[in-house]
Nucleic acid binder design. Structure first.
Length: 442
RNA sequence: GCGGGCGUCGCCAAGUGGUUAAGGCAGCGGCUUGUGGCGCCGCUAUUCGGGGGUUCGAAUCCCCUCGCUCGCCCCA
């Protein structure tokens, strides 16, 4: 039979990776907690219309990347391609705004039907925050610094924060029509892909990688010149706050986020080490979205970090500097104790003892093989465990167990020094010794 | 959806038309059923992603197909 495989772009996370993911997630969780952000969990599947209305019909995400299907009741459903729309829906549905502004974070898998490449999968993971009901420049600075500091805390210090403003929704509309009429006059000069976008998503043309089009665009009306004084003043304030927070940034007037709902502040945190997909974190303000989804006018801002890209970076940092923050995350856990046992009675003793020691909080790996002592010692060694605990017929007969350090330099020679018998009625004494790894001479 | 690169064991690979498809790592077993790092010995691909063709003969050449990968588009 042919070997079954995961679907294209869907990858398994194996035990050697999950330890690093868990460590990273824990740091993020604590980071959010300290800042007063609380977790929200929403379904992976939503009504297609939520994304169509929220993200925008003209975007690639909605236009060609959604995993959509009809359920048995003929409802059009979609696997979430991003988190913001779902969070906003949940906030509205549960009336959370009645309790005031919401500081929320979320994490989990997202789905986009695209060709996989480095740093891109069809099922990928994001962690993100949404600060809903917050409109002033201070909230922009707070949310951006939350991302920046988290990445810094994880050990990533070579990242670049790129910043731009899209102006208010009105500014954006005004600029959009100016840009479109300019583009229509210059349609012959720009590349074909950009031409196709004139009527669907003109702002994105500013971000084209086509160098010829870029050169021509230099003469186009600039977004900065079109936005209102009020919006400009707001942007200046955000920059001043970031400077006060000692967060370096680079202005990038071509940074135009892809999803329709963004206005005012837009930002990305990027790395040059990730290949073509350099954005680790992307976000911005979306003051119009809540209204668009049927809620009251509610200014909001948020971001999302791509977990796979983050892990890629952490892996690279860990290699360069194993002792740095990123390096520490990679460490896998080995058991405190490897329980060697042989013989029918020893078998039951070992099982019971393992349970007791685990109840005391120890990580206990129980050998189930019934193989020779030699084999079991070999496995104990490989497990990375500091201690081996031996239960055989001799021990059972005496109601004792033998504890042995596996970290001695020469295995057999100091057998007598590295082994010690413990009475089974004295579990506390045993546990105390196990927790004192430093004093190897028993 | 469109380009480029690549598919030989769990991993890294040699082999580029001639009888048995190197080697290394890992794994398993033994020397060793009461003591682990080392050592030695043995085992582990009837088959080279799959299908078809050329040939006396194919992992090697041709065609198709599937998969992986990198890039474009776009994003996290």
């Amino acid at each position: 039979m042919k070997q079954l495989r995961s679907l294209r772009g869907m990858v398994d996370l194996l035990p050697e990776q999950t330890c690093c993911w868990q460590a990273t997630e824990e740091i993020a969780r604590n980071h959010f907690l300290k800042a007063g952000f609380h977790e929200i969990r929403t379904p992976l599947i939503e009504v297609t219309d939520l994304f169509a209305r929220g993200i925008g019909e003209a975007t690639d995400v909605v236009g060609k990347e959604m995993y959509s299907f009809l359920d048995k009741g003929d409802r059009s459903c979609t696997l979430r391609p991003e988190g913001t729309a779902s969070v906003v829906r949940a906030v509205l549905q549960n009336g959370l705004l009645n309790k005031g502004p919401q500081r929320l974070w979320y994490g989990g898998p997202m789905f986009r039907y695209e060709r996989p490449q480095a740093g891109r999968q069809r099922q990928f993971h994001q962690i993100g925050v949404e600060y809903i009901g917050a409109g002033n420049a201070r909230s922009d600075a707070e949310v951006i610094s939350l991302a920046w500091r988290l990445l810094y805390e994880l050990g990533l210090d070579n990242l670049v924060l790129e910043l731009n403003t899209l102006g208010s929704s009105e500014d954006r509309e005004v600029y959009k029509s100016k840009l479109v009429s300019w583009l229509e006059a210059h349609v012959e000069e720009i590349d074909e892909e950009s031409r196709n976008r004139v009527n669907t998503n003109p702002l994105r043309i500013l971000d084209t990688k086509n160098t010829q089009t870029q050169a021509i665009l230099k003469k186009a009306p600039s977004l900065m010149d079109s936005i209102s004084d009020e919006s400009r003043q707001r942007f200046v304030e955000v920059q001043e706050l970031l400077e006060a927070l000692e967060i370096p940034f680079k202005l990038n007037p071509r940074l135009v986020r892809g999803l329709d709902y963004y206005n005012h502040t837009a930002f990305e945190i990027t790395s040059s080490q990730l290949g073509a997909q350099g954005t680790v974190c992307g976000g911005g303000r979306y003051d119009g979205l809540i209204e668009q989804l049927g809620g009251p006018p509610t200014p909001s801002i948020g971001w999302a970090i791509g977990m796979e890209r983050l892990m890629l970076l952490l892996g690279m940092y860990a290699e360069i500097n194993p002792k740095g923050n990123a390096g520490r995350l990679k460490k896998s856990v080995s058991p405190d104790l490897y329980l060697i046992n042989r013989g029918l009675k020893a078998d039951k003793f070992a099982l019971l003892l393992a349970h007791k020691l685990r109840a005391e909080g120890l990580i206990v790996e129980l050998d189930n093989s019934g193989a020779s002592f030699g084999k079991q010692f070999k496995r104990a060694d490989r497990s990375g465990s500091f201690w081996a605990l031996i239960i055989g017929d001799e021990e059972v007969a005496q109601n004792k167990v033998k504890l042995k350090s596996m970290k001695t330099s020469s295995p057999q020679q100091d057998q007598n020094n590295s082994e010690h018998l413990y009475d089974l009625t004295d579990i506390r004494g045993l546990i105390n010794q196990i927790n004192h790894k430093d004093s190897t001479n028993l």
